[in-house]
Design a protein around this nucleic acid. Structure first.
Lengths: 198, 198
DNA sequence: CGCGTTCTTGACGCCATGTCAAATACTATT
DNA sequence: AATAGTATTTGACATGGCGTCAAGAACGCG
């Protein structure tokens, strides 16, 4: 069989970069094909559709993202962990030039626009998985905090609340683009969850 | 001059309904035209473009939405007000069949996908305005709460936090579609802001 | 009663997605 | 080493939606 003439991973990286910068709708497969030095048809052959390519590229990113969050949530006091978690989240929203926003939230909203259909449901599941994985990481940190007496409350509910705030931050970033505002909200959230002095 | 053969407001209602159900991308102007009994060309003549029509339809909705939130935030104890605010927010996400999600968040994410361009910036501003208006309403309720001794804290920061949670709820609704989960987070947020017993 | 302005109508161009068949390049088999 | 088989590449094609435009239609006004 004839071998691929392009590197699967390179294409995913290039595609993700474009999707992140221009959105799914704003990115044309011909752009990705040009940047990757590949014919459009080859992308269809390899991935099936634009949305499938996006999901592949997205999942590749999601793995890296989750492990960086895991690292942030893994060391120090609970307050330090949560602070590092929010810092990384906000930094992620505001990296690139211009700030790129949150790929997760954007992708979810873009792909689940159409009601009740195949690929959209696929996309929804993919994004829901990521949110669930992040929630689990936060919950784990909170549970360890309970054991160490740094937190008393329900880790499950608190984790949901924290993750909800991060998704909300993604929307506010998109609406206002004000990093200081995001940091204020994040710090306030940590204070609310742990108590002012923590 | 020749008079319009269609009712401006009717078209906006029909358009908004479609955009809400199927998203901006998933809605075709021909659908709206058919449902409204209007030619596609007339829509272009009246509104200019698909995205402009969406923004018109959206602004029409935003006014109604904000005033319903205002009503929810205007009576009872602070706890009752915030609870009513979250109830209405969640009910709004979950109304229709299937649940339609949050038009604000969805629209924002869909329209601001492409970086740095005219209409997208327009859309961003429109949505940012709505979020700001809602934040103001919440902040006002909190300030009144401070006067009445029902809340002590910074109304501005707390309002930002609460609105951030509502935007996050919109994302979680999209991801999981679990109304009970949304209600848990909302109740938890009210407890955090006002104190458990409030 | 016509004049001008605005709205309507339907055909058109454009562009992006997605499809397909033929050509191609490699592997495995004999 | 030649050949059969398989997967990939390639470029042309079909489809369909957005947006444009010129010609016609309907009304207010002089």
């Amino acid at each position: 069989m004839r071998p691929r003439e392009f590197n699967h991973d390179d294409v995913l990286r290039i595609a993700f970069d474009q999707f992140w910068r221009k959105g799914v709708r704003g990115t044309q497969l011909s752009d990705i094909a040009r940047d990757a030095g590949v014919q459009r048809g080859s992308l269809y052959n390899a991935f099936g559709s634009k949305e499938a390519l996006f999901l592949c590229a997205y999942e590749r990113y999601a793995g890296e993202y989750v492990s960086s969050l895991q690292k942030a949530l893994g060391a120090g006091t609970l307050r330090e962990r949560l602070t590092a978690f929010f810092d990384l989240t906000i930094k992620n929203f505001r990296s690139g030039s211009p700030p790129r926003g949150c790929p997760t939230t954007r992708g979810l909203m873009e792909l689940t626009s159409v009601e009740g259909e195949g690929l959209d449901e696929n996309g929804r599941k993919t994004f829901a998985d990521l949110v669930a994985r992040i929630t689990d990481l936060v919950q784990e940190a909170l549970s360890e905090g309970v054991e160490r007496g740094e937190f008393n409350g329900d880790p499950e509910t608190a984790a949901l609340h924290i993750v909800t705030v991060t998704r909300g931050l993604a929307v506010l970033e998109r609406a206002f683009g004000d990093e200081a505002q995001l940091r204020t909200i994040a710090a306030h959230t940590v204070d609310l969850v742990l108590g002012k002095k923590g």
